[in-house]
């Protein structure tokens, strides 16, 4: 148990584009213990989804350069050939997307798609696969699951589709579940159902989970730990309770202060973070948040040193944590 389930070291992802390279992820370290849920928290364009997709190598190879190391269940993902990669996807690591309508093939029923995944990875008979598919639909609490097995994706409501997507992802009992904003497109009353379901399944099946979200509330609901990303870097990491109670990094502080909480005084303006995130068309050696930071000093524009550990928390900022 001492080995982490997912171990990412100095991950750098660069996309080639017509306008030149985009440094989407710039030196990310992550560890995920077995059975743990990590919330990858950040705003659009911060590299959280890119990081996730890199774990399964889902980026188009000819446009992407991935450097660093990714180990999942002890295996080196970046060194894998096509065969090993397809065994990894679905069997060891599975993914749930924001829009299940795009992840399902519209011409096959939900049951057929789950069966297909089960048979590919476990080589079992059609009947066994169907039994498994049914069991999975029941586990994700889809009502009248037997009937839903033969439903097409478009025949289901958004919430049911997302549940079916989860059933598909979990059908081969993956060790790691990657969830990319799976509840963002859902209505409030459905979102909480799906969040609680994911949490329950994760506990039951003993999976590790990485949950990408921009929503602080959602992160609090599901995660044990959180890693806050900004401009392609993890700038703060730690147990979710302590990070949320006492954020260290000025960006995390700003993000929490800018989020509207229930019962805020309306006569008081919100503590908005000035400015907007930088473009990642150039590599930013210094702290990318410095131009927006209220605590920034001259030395903040020097190259950013590696992250510092402090107990169970990690901080990527030159200002001492004790000063906060």
């Amino acid at each position: 148990m001492s080995h982490p389930m997912v171990e990412v070291r100095d991950l750098r992802v660069t996309f080639r584009s017509e306008e030149g390279p985009i440094y989407a992820v710039d030196g990310v370290d992550l560890d995920l213990a077995p059975g743990e849920t990590l919330a990858l928290l950040g705003e659009s364009g911060c590299g959280k989804s890119v990081t996730m997709k890199s774990l399964m190598r889902l980026h188009p190879a000819h446009k992407t350069r991935i450097e660093g190391s990714i180990r999942i269940a002890g295996e080196d993902v970046l060194a894998m050939n096509a065969g090993a990669l397809s065994r990894l996807r679905g069997k060891t690591v599975a993914m749930v997307f924001q829009e299940p309508m795009l992840a399902f093939d519209p011409v096959f029923t939900i049951g057929e798609q789950i069966c297909e995944a089960v048979r590919r990875h476990e080589g079992c008979s059609g009947a066994d696969a169907r039994a498994r598919a049914l069991e999975m639909l029941e586990r994700v609490q889809i009502p009248s699951a037997r009937k839903r097995l033969d439903a097409y994706p478009h025949e289901m409501s958004g919430g049911m589709r997302q549940r079916a997507m989860i059933a598909l992802a979990l059908s081969c009992q993956p060790k790691v579940l990657l969830a990319d904003e799976p509840t963002t497109a859902l209505d409030a009353t459905v979102q909480i159902q799906v969040l609680l379901l994911l949490k329950e399944l994760q506990r039951e099946m003993g999976m590790s989970m990485i949950f990408v979200t921009h929503d602080v509330g959602v992160a609090i609901e599901v995660a044990d730990r959180t890693a806050v990303m900004y401009a392609g870097r993890v700038i703060e990491q730690g147990p979710i309770d302590s990070v949320m109670r006492a954020p260290w990094h000025p960006y995390t502080q700003g993000l929490l202060a800018a989020t509207v909480h229930p019962g805020m005084d309306r006569r008081q303006a919100l503590n908005a973070i000035p400015g907007s995130p930088p473009q990642l068309t150039r590599r930013i050696p210094e702290c990318a948040f410095a131009p927006r930071c209220t605590l920034a000093s001259a030395s903040c524009h020097d190259p950013l040193p590696p992250a510092r550990m402090d107990g169970d928390r990690l901080l990527r900022c030159i200002q001492p944590a004790s000063a906060r």
Binding site: L195, R245, T259, P262
Partner: peptide, 25 residues
Amino acid sequence: RALLESVPAQTPGERRQHAVLEGDP
């Protein structure tokens, strides 16, 4: 009431224990 109780917690102490409503609209 259900809508208000479905909003994700904003602090770790207020995590939701169960969903108030079942199913989709």
